[in-house]
């Protein structure tokens, strides 16, 4: 999902930067507020950031014969709501743009919009939807992780199609081409990311119960409640 440095025409690069900026600024304020009001959240915030840091560094093979990396933004979106991930995801992208020549400064806005804004919000939406339909916590987490991953790559494909429409078939033709590269490869990775999210949440529900209850992810357990 990293659009390479310089590979968006300047108006697009500027436009996506302007679109993503308010989300990132709002996200930064949310992180500061969370840490100030609930210092005990810092550990889990660190875990959410670290999860994205690990997963976006690992390129995995897919059945299509190409490789790609997961995003890991669904975890923080479920725990702290999506705005927090707008900041954490952008920090990861900035790190990769500056040190790894992966993505870029001119494409940071577009990449942040797909990975740090659309992904977390779609994942959070899936999480709420599964829970509302009576699905348990773990299926909801699976949906959040898998769809935040997939939605990020679909967004990148659409951003590229918008910037480079096909000479004959226009935006739709280009979208089909870029989706063919990004979306299909991503399906097994999204499933894998969903399973990893379930694994992590199984650990968190046992060991971070008080935090998850406060964040509204778990219901207070009446048996364990203090009298």
């Amino acid at each position: 999902m990293h659009i390479a440095e310089g590979f968006l025409p300047a108006p697009h690069a500027l436009g996506w930067t302007l679109v993503a900026a308010p989300f990132v600024v709002h996200g930064a304020r949310c992180v500061v507020k969370e840490v100030r009001e609930h210092p005990e959240s810092t550990l889990l915030l660190g875990a959410a950031g670290a999860f994205t840091f690990v997963l976006s560094a690992i390129k995995l093979p897919s059945v299509t014969g190409s490789s790609s990396h997961p995003t890991g933004t669904g975890l923080g979106a479920v725990l702290f709501r999506p705005p927090v991930m707008a900041l954490l995801g952008t920090i990861v992208l900035l790190f990769q743009a500056l040190l790894l020549a992966h993505g870029g400064l001119t494409t940071l806005g577009a990449n942040a919009f797909s990975m740090a804004v659309v992904g977390p919000w779609v994942g959070y939406g899936a999480y709420r939807l599964v829970k509302r339909c009576g699905g348990g916590l773990l299926p909801a987490v699976f949906g959040a992780m898998a769809l935040s991953d997939l939605a990020t790559y679909v967004t990148t494909a659409l951003q590229l199609a918008l910037a480079f429409p096909d000479a004959e078939s226009g935006f739709l033709g280009a979208a089909a081409k870029f989706l063919g590269v990004f979306a299909v490869t991503q399906v097994p990775l999204a499933i894998g990311e969903g399973l990893l999210g379930v694994l992590l949440f199984r650990v968190l529900t046992v060991n971070a119960r008080p935090e998850l209850v406060r964040l509204g992810v778990l219901r207070p357990d009446p048996e364990r409640a203090e009298p």
Binding site: F7, A10, S66, S68, A97, L99, G104, T106, L160
Partner: peptide, 29 residues
């Protein structure tokens, strides 16, 4: 197992041979 990111870049270079990236990475390993 080429990365999808570089495949997308190749796709752009194929369909728009005239497109010139207008910015270089500040640091490349």
């Amino acid at each position: 197992y080429a990365g999808t990111d570089s495949q997308a870049t190749e796709l752009i270079e194929e369909s728009r041979p005239d497109y010139q990236p207008w910015f270089e990475s500040v640091f490349s390993p």
